[in-house]
Write a protein that binds this DNA or RNA. Sequence first.
DNA 1: ACTTAACGGGAATAA
DNA 2: CCCGTTAAGT
Length: 728
Amino acid sequence: METNTHPLLSILNTQQRAAVTTPIGPVLVLAGPGSGKTRVLTHRIAWMLSEMDVAPWHVLAVTFTNKAAREMRQRLNVMLGDARTGSMALGTFHATCARILRREAENLGLSPSYLIFDSDDQLTVMKQIVADLGLDDKRYRPRALLNAVSSAKNELLSPTDYPVRTYYDEIVARAYARYQETLHQNDGLDFDDLLMKTARLFETDAEVLSRYRDRYRHVLVDEFQDTNVAQYAILKQLTHKHRSLYVVADEDQSIYSWRGADYRNIVRLRQDFPELQTHLLEENYRSTQIILDGAQAIIARNPDRTPKHLFTDKQGGHPIVLHEAYDEQEEADYVAREATRLLRAGYRHGDIAVMYRTNAQSRALEETFIRHNLPYRLIGATRFYSRKEIKDVLAFLRLAQNPDDDVSFMRVVNVPPRGIGSTTLGKVSAQAQNHQCSLYQGLLSLVESDGLRSRAERVLTAFATMLHQWVELREAYSVTRLIDRILADTGYESYTRDGSDQGESRWENVMALRAVVAETPGIALLDFLTEVALVADVDELADEVDAVTLLTLHSAKGLEYPVVFLTGLEEGLLPHSRSMDSPMEVAEERRLLYVGMTRAEQRLYLTYAFRRSWRGYRDSEPSSPSRFLEDLPDEALKQPEDQKRRAARPSGAAKPWGAESSRPETRARPEPQYRSGQRVKHAFYGEGMVIECEFEGRNEMVTVLFSNGVGVKKFLSGMAPMEPLADH
DNA sequence: ACTTAACGGGAATAA
DNA sequence: CCCGTTAAGT
């Protein structure tokens, strides 16, 4: 077939076309941001199906989010028709593995109706274990232990494999073993288990492996740079025989190493598949030349990377705007004002995204957006599925599916309050201990044994009966009907709607959950629970809503917007203080900035604040602009004419705001005259040392500790007869 | 048994 | 600031 006239190829450039039509085999596509990798992946699948005699049921495509999977399936439907794509496996690693494990549960001694434990559930379990093992939860923080367990799983280490070098490791190994036992007893798997158990299944069961590798004869993977050891093992096991593995990667966008992602998987790929063909996608279709130049300048400073030659035909463009604000409030104000200005100029709300390093930063932005009447949608943070009322209802549903799930049992045994306090619960738990069974089974035997009197007996019997009925009704009822029944049985509505606005909103959330179910009528309870456990925050992102998007840099991966604001570009935030002592982690923070910058199509704003409150208090020390901003080329930063207030470049990397940095200010605020730690001499009080220095509006307040029994005094700088002393 | 207030301690990113 | 835990009160 003539490749340049084929309809599937007509809209592709030369590099893309080569990548799409390359012969079947191991293929690595190295793709810069905005170079159309999703398009290449989609067209590759279409090409394989229509021109290479590949059957759709032999294709497995792994995307980074459910949303990406949905979109890819839609595009393929348009290109090829539903009939061809219906049998194709398309989803995230986690969703794919969850499905495989469900089907192969028996081969693993796993319940086919296992439930997925989210991070809250994990924490509950780990806290219990720390208590059971009699450990000090300050020294052995449940969260820290969970992190260790998670990394172990990502590297396919079981509790017995866990390398013990220190006593702490020994504790981790013990907690890990206990944790796995507990999950097993509850028929639960955590997120990492989904990957690890699948990898182990393929490793240990040749029959199962051969079935899946014949089924998924052709595997395609997006965002390959963010796969971890377990995921790579799965890919390798599946494809090593038929050798049809097609991966798309960009090492510069590797931002999940903390989750076990290992970009060295690219190296492993070359070793395991020496015949690997490599394709490059270097033309950027997303951003203007100026934005691309800025981003390139940032990423070029990272060591150990392959230099790329990204280019675009969108020459020039709006300069990147660098803006300094006084604090996070004014930063948010600036974003809101600038957004409003752009809206008047014709942009739509949905064209604009505001990104930040940590979820906590969204608060100031939200408050300001509400004040400015700017519609926004927030990704993450207050995740719908992590709200208390939603988790409660889900816990009820989980108990209907699996009453032996102790974690859910504990969560809602007294929600809404039904008189089962710690004393009564203690009896249930003791019974369960004695009989080596779940709390639910313990409850049943306790109720039957007639060993209770009075009030406790009544409430326990009522609760047991209620649970039992739900379990009975599970098959006969639709999920919607089951929810209605649960809400009625528990009196959840009157519990939630306490008359407050918050109560109303909680009830609305519950109804929203019900509406989610109603959208897929006929869905089985188990499928619903699995789906819910695996939704990502960005999956929720509805395109129809015209609102400004607020999201973390991490969730921004794969997205693009005409206008992007990157906020909080300060030392300690980006790079994050937790990463600053490790060059590897700082490099990843730099990639995070690069990912953020390359989301922008037309306009890019970079903002940072002079002072940022933390934990509700103002920091005593001002922040410094991010060291990364140093590397922006001046040409990309020229101020636009219409910009009334002028932002300045930071004066030096990680340098505090010294008097030598003469920058035009956001507002008329004088330079700080003092800094903490500085020696001063006061006309009345003599010598002292500055212990705090802060601005209240444009006034610099200086707190000084004097010797000679004078103590601490606070002054308005400039008004006080005081001057700095030279340092020795 | 449950509610409320006071306290202490702590935080990054996410399926 | 937000959380979970604890102590005291209803």
